[in-house]
């Protein structure tokens, strides 16, 4: 098991190896967040255990429309910063359609982070094939620090969920996950995601999740 580090813990003495979750002062590397230490010869980083989602360019996120204005939509992406989706970045916009006919307050969308300016003004785009307005399915909210575990190494965990259950899943980097498909299977998928979130940093997680899905499937009575 990896060692847990707290902010201010000295984790390396070579500033060249400093990675995510660390900071350098006087040539020493300290942890700046609570997390798990991942130390190799060439790099040292801290895997966060908690914390808000901080947007970065290219992330796929699930958001809720909070405001409709003449030039676009304000979208809540569950981060410290509200995002903005301009009309020009939504391919559904047609000259004869009003913005609130396309997306209204409370609608959920899957979008991509297009740009973040130095003032942390976040711009979204829906010009991508994973992006879509969400009209059906279910949204599950988890701790954004656990998102990499739900995806797994090179998408292994998410592939497992999809193939075992035959459902559609899109993971937003902000911790919101959209699932759609057969209702009973979606419920199992949701439970499985909560299992992953709870047990995120334990060994043999993939095996346990596989077993969990099999057990739940036989409980419900689907093959």
């Amino acid at each position: 098991m990896r060692q847990i580090v707290l902010p201010g813990d000295l984790i390396a003495t070579n500033p060249k190896v400093a990675g995510f979750g660390t900071y350098v002062e006087n040539g020493k590397v300290y942890s700046k967040i609570l997390g798990l230490l991942d130390k190799t010869e060439t790099s040292v980083r801290v895997i966060p255990l908690k914390g808000r989602y901080i947007p970065s360019i290219g992330d796929v996120v699930v958001g809720i429309v909070r405001e409709v204005s003449g030039n676009g939509w304000s979208v809540d992406i569950y981060s410290p910063y509200q995002a903005f989706l301009p009309l020009s970045e939504n391919p559904e916009v047609k000259p004869n359609k009003k913005p609130n006919d396309i997306l209204d307050i409370g609608d959920a969308i899957i979008a991509k982070v297009l740009n973040i300016d130095p003032k942390m003004k976040v711009t979204l785009t829906m010009k991508d094939k994973v992006c879509r307005p969400i009209r059906f399915g279910r949204i599950v909210f988890i701790n954004p620090a656990r998102v990499p575990r739900v995806i797994g190494k090179k998408g292994s965990m998410i592939k497992l969920l999809k193939s075992e259950l035959g459902i559609q899943i899109i993971v937003g980097q902000n911790g919101l996950i959209w699932i759609s498909g057969d209702r009973r299977k979606v419920s199992i998928g949701e439970e499985a995601i909560y299992v992953i979130e709870e047990e995120a940093h334990t060994d043999g997680l993939t095996d346990r999740v596989t077993e969990f899905i099999k057990r739940r499937k036989s409980d419900v009575g689907i093959e």
Binding site: Y23, L34, K50, G51, R52, A145
Partner: peptide, 11 residues
């Protein structure tokens, strides 16, 4: 603050 995952220089 540590529990919230806020980045800090120390405790």
């Amino acid at each position: 603050l540590v529990d919230a995952g806020v980045p800090m220089k120390g405790m």
